[in-house]
Design a protein around this nucleic acid. Structure first.
Lengths: 230, 230
DNA sequence: TCACGTTCTCTTGCATGCAACAGAACGTAC
DNA sequence: GTACGTTCTGTTGCATGCAAGAGAACGTGA
């Protein structure tokens, strides 16, 4: 059952460095929070020795994804509710910053991508295609982040999202039809500001949007699986 | 000569984890950018084997401080000018965010620290005590960052500053009497906004301040040692 | 003098072995 | 039944050995 999940996916974990593969394993949700990640087992699973596994786990520790208890073991780390709130605050700051930076740039290809994205989102929303909508939301945010033309920002955002990616909380927005409509309008508002080169307004609109969706997710999770988050 | 430098300092590198010690070594400037960091030499220097050194270097690579060329060696990494600009943009965003968050919080002890800090800064500026002034600036910024009460923000900011801490560029502000006065006034403005609980104004004031000082540093370095940064 | 093939050295990458420790499991005394 | 001391198993931490590769150094031919 657990294995079937990985089998069903396009196996993104099979590609890339060992670190990426181990990270995908942790983020994949196959190991629930608190589950032990034995170095020897992982070593066997990936067909390498303990040493490179150790290096990867150490890195994941610094990324906040696992916890290494000396002489005891390595465990999948569950972020506290407080941390999630903090991460969303950061997300708001970084995405706002990115939107502002993008607005300052001239006419760049990212704008076309965003325009089509918003149009497609409207369609996906009308068709109630939750999966496609979630995918478009993902693209929208990442396009703006990358559109900032600031690689360090992208790096930090990536780190942030990895920590936030737990529990596939990301796609939950798609389940609320009411929120979808609001969310689409907010995307539209952000894009308008960017195209108007109003970097101040773009940042404000983006932050407003991120804040609204994070509030949605936080209140959601609080009621849905309060025990695991609080 | 090189050894004497470490001997002369209060040896902050002697404390903390191995990672911290190696990081201090790199940031200490004893190894110029591009200098090789041999695993075996470091292992001897720290009295451990290659393995823990390797782990530390790998981590420093992810922090952007060193570059590991496979099968060739590990080298102190020199950030490009573009990266420095990107980092300053991020710095502006994070410090602005922190100032805003701090302003939202009620009357917290950080406010007293900041108040005294600004007062002391005025004195230090009047007395032309550059070292003390630089120290106070450092405290001012970190107090606001920590005052955000957002540990994830602190973590990201710490990472950021490590990358920016190269070449002790940080203290250069102290060399410009004109900039000092402006800088102090900007600190005062930020503090006023925070104490007025104007989180919007606090963020704006902070960003304005960070932007101004980063412009100062960037134009400085461009003229001073253009070759090494561009 | 220059171009080119070869050796040679130094580096990292990874596998493995052993020691140290945490914590569970167990037995024992009361 | 309970508290406590002991063993025992599993885990990580680190040292070491060996192999593979990159690049310098060198020699050789023209």
């Amino acid at each position: 059952m657990q294995e079937n999940v990985t089998e069903a996916l396009p196996r993104p974990a099979e590609q890339g460095t060992l670190l990426d593969r181990v990270r995908s394993l942790v983020l994949g949700g196959e190991y629930p929070p608190g589950a032990p990640l034995s170095e020897v087992l992982l070593a066997e699973e990936f067909g390498v020795s303990r040493t490179p596994i150790r290096e990867a786990l150490k890195q994941l520790q610094h990324e906040g994804l696992v916890e290494i208890r000396p002489k005891v073991g390595t465990f999948v780390r569950e972020p506290t509710r407080r941390e999630i709130v903090e991460l969303f605050q950061l997300k708001e700051g970084l995405e706002g910053l990115a939107a502002g930076l993008l607005a300052r740039r001239g006419p760049v290809p990212e704008l076309d991508v965003l325009e089509r994205n918003v149009e497609d989102s409207v369609v996906a929303a009308a068709e109630q295609d939750a999966e496609r909508y979630a995918s478009l939301v993902h693209e929208f945010h990442w396009t703006i982040i990358r559109g900032s033309d600031n690689r360090k920002l992208v790096e930090h955002y990536d780190r942030l999202m990895n920590q936030l990616a737990y529990h596939r909380m990301v796609v939950r927005t798609a389940e609320h039809p009411g929120r979808i409509r609001t969310s689409t309008e907010e995307h539209r508002a952000v894009l308008d500001m960017i195209m108007a080169k109003d970097h101040f307004g773009a940042e404000a609109a983006m932050r407003n949007h991120v804040y609204a969706s994070s509030r949605e997710l936080l209140t959601d999770s609080a009621t849905a699986h309060e025990s695991s988050l609080l």
